[in-house]
Simulated scan of single mutants.
Amino acid sequence: MNAQQVILRKMTPAEYGAATEHREAESVRVLSRLMPEEVARERVRRGTATFLPDGLDTAGHHLLTAENAAGDAVGNAWVGPDPHQASGSASSAWLYDIHVFVPFRRLGYGSAILTAAEALVAREGRTALGLNVVGDNEAAIALYRRLGYDVTSMSLRKTI
């Protein structure tokens, strides 16, 4: 497979709305395994309000659309301050979300978006990019491992 390349640009308001809707629906789907759906929906809504109080224009956050060489939007990403570090002194950034649109999956765009996000973080003087991944998302885990990401913590759960 040829290595894809993307250009990251700020999302338009319409793209931000669609990305938020998708991210929140996916988050509710995952959290609903652990709690009632209505509780999950409220938790996700509060999370968006907390982390993106000014939406698309929240300071320190990059809400990005990835375009390929043909100018097609192939996915998006949300990169911002590492929530595990004190603001103002953080040496790392956080990948809150990455999404490759269905027609462009399994073509190398996930790697391209992540590589472009890493370059953005490096240009800002940060030395690391952290992220969370759902434990059963084997494709994403394989991507992150292939690109050199290491496990830094792990949470396990068993329903009994």
Rank of each mutant, 00 (worst) to 15 (best):
R41W: 07
G110C: 11
L8H: 01
P103T: 03
R46Q: 08
L95R: 02
H61C: 02
S153C: 11
A19Q: 06
T127F: 05
V39A: 15
M11P: 00
P53N: 03
A77C: 01
P103Y: 09
Q85K: 11
L114W: 06
K158E: 15
R45C: 09
W78A: 01
G47H: 08
A73S: 04
F101Y: 15
L95S: 05
R45W: 09
D54S: 00
D136K: 03
A77D: 02
Y149R: 09
A59F: 04
A66D: 05
V39L: 14
A93G: 14
N137W: 06
H22E: 12
R41H: 14
I160E: 10
G75M: 05
L129R: 06
G60V: 00
T127S: 14
V134Q: 13
I141Y: 07
P81C: 02
R105V: 07
E15F: 01
P53A: 07
G75K: 07
A93C: 11
M154K: 10
N137T: 10
M1R: 08
A40E: 13
P53M: 01
L107C: 09
T58G: 00
T65H: 02
V28M: 07
A19E: 05
L131C: 04
M11S: 03
L107D: 11
N132R: 14
R46D: 09
P13H: 01
V133L: 09
G130T: 09
A116V: 02
R29Q: 11
T50Y: 10
S153P: 01
R33T: 15
R41A: 15
S155P: 02
R29Y: 12
G71W: 09
G47F: 01
G110Y: 04
M154H: 10
L107G: 13
R23H: 11
E124Y: 03
Q4N: 08
N76E: 01
F104C: 11
V100G: 07
G60Q: 01
A49G: 05
H61W: 03
T152K: 06
V28R: 12
S87M: 11
D82T: 04
L34I: 12
L56A: 00
R9W: 02
D54T: 00
A128F: 08
